Computed example of a mutant assay.
Amino acid sequence: MSLAISQCVYSQIQRYSLSRQKPRSFGEQVAIFAATRIFDVGLTTAAAVAAAAAGANAMGVPLTSDILRHAAVGGALKATAMAVAGLIMLAPQNAPLIVLMTLLGTSIGSNVVLVVAVANRIFGTAPNELIIAAVVASIPLSFCFVYYYGAFRVPITFTSIAFDVLGAYTFVRMAENLGYPICPTRPALVAGAVFGTVFSFTITLLSCCVIGKSRNIHVSDFSANGHVSGSAYTTCCGNRVHVSVHATEYARGQGVSGSSNTFTNGTVYNSAHGLGIFWDPGSVNGGLTFNTHSTRDCTTSTGTSNMTRIVMA
């Protein structure tokens, strides 16, 4: 799962409950993290299988169950390595472990794991040439340009397709330059494009349907002077918030009693747009984002009061 998606899941879903308006417990955070990472492993596996099928077709070789099986294992291992690193980094760490998990969670670490595993399955060994090629190919894969949309900063990741294509091209050419050719350039480009398309399209659907989905947030607050109750309904991507709040304040004092009611209704338009340039689409932190933000409050408030004042002459 790309770093941008991970950050959005953490900030919008995992860390804080909008419906309860309070931080989630550590157990809830771990459960949400596990669910999203299981989804990520499944998606990466499916994208790898689709890429292998497309690459075999472009190369003109029969598509066998071994090809699909090797691709599935590689995709699952890559996503699992990042997931394990991210899960361990949720808890307080010492410096050496952080360095180890950071390396495992980067494209370099996960790509080396993938190449070693798949090469051992196919060749019975992992040639140094392929490991070096995997490290070099991780450089373009370690950048992900992400466009953000909406108040929930829903990420749109289609721009990462070009980097998947470039990564596949770099891996094949580097292996060839080191004297260990794998396949012609065209099948590698096709496989990279298919992987990026499947992954980016599905992740964007997740962003819009889960991260930026419509939410109904209930408001309730009691104090010595009264209470506030109501709800705020946010539309997809959080660009419009429909507000309906009823606040009651009670007046108590010497010679005074009564209450004051305030009704607030309307819509708040709240949106953000930006471009994020992230180092490593893995599970570690980092990145640079340029955002614009705008808010337009179109709510109206009306009030009624019922006060009694007793004055002793």
Rank of each mutant, 00 (worst) to 15 (best):
G196I: 05
V194D: 01
N128S: 15
I161C: 03
A72F: 13
M89P: 04
L68S: 07
V61G: 03
C183P: 00
V84M: 13
A71W: 11
A188Y: 02
N128W: 14
P140N: 11
F199V: 00
F158I: 08
L97V: 14
L77D: 11
A175Q: 04
P127L: 10
A76R: 07
V113R: 05
V135R: 07
G124K: 11
Y180A: 12
M174R: 01
Q93N: 14
L141T: 00
A117H: 12
R173V: 06
G196R: 00
F143A: 07
A193M: 14
V135G: 03
V99Q: 14
T197Q: 07
V112Y: 04
I139R: 01
G167L: 03
F143G: 00
G74T: 04
S65N: 14
V73T: 13
A191T: 03
V61I: 15
A188C: 02
P92I: 13
G60C: 12
T64R: 12
V99L: 15
A188E: 01
G109A: 10
V84E: 10
Y147K: 07
V115D: 00
I98H: 13
Y147Q: 10
G179F: 06
A85L: 09
A95K: 15
I182M: 09
V172E: 03
G167S: 14
G196Y: 06
P140H: 05
A72Q: 10
V113I: 15
I156Q: 11
A168K: 02
F145E: 06
M59H: 14
I67Y: 09
V146P: 00
A175H: 03
A76G: 12
F123V: 02
L103G: 15
A83F: 13
C183V: 09
S142M: 07
R121Q: 15
V135F: 01
G109S: 10
V113K: 08
F143Y: 09
T80I: 13
F171W: 03
I132C: 03
F171Q: 00
V198E: 04
A81D: 07
T64I: 09
N128C: 07
E129D: 12
G60Y: 05
C183F: 04
S65K: 14
V115Y: 06
F171T: 01
M89C: 11
V135T: 04
G124P: 06
V146L: 05
G75S: 10
C144F: 08
V198H: 05
V194R: 00
Y148P: 00
A175M: 04
L103F: 15
A79E: 06
T157G: 01
I132L: 15
L77N: 04
Q93G: 08
V113G: 03
L100K: 09
S200E: 11
V194G: 02
G75N: 06
A95S: 14
Y147S: 06
A71D: 05
P187M: 00
G60R: 11
R186V: 07
V172Q: 01
A81Y: 09
G192C: 03
L97W: 14
Y149A: 08
V113W: 04
G150Q: 04
M89E: 15
T157L: 12
F145D: 01
T185F: 03
N120Q: 12
I132F: 08
L130S: 06
A83R: 04
P96V: 11
F158T: 12
L63K: 10
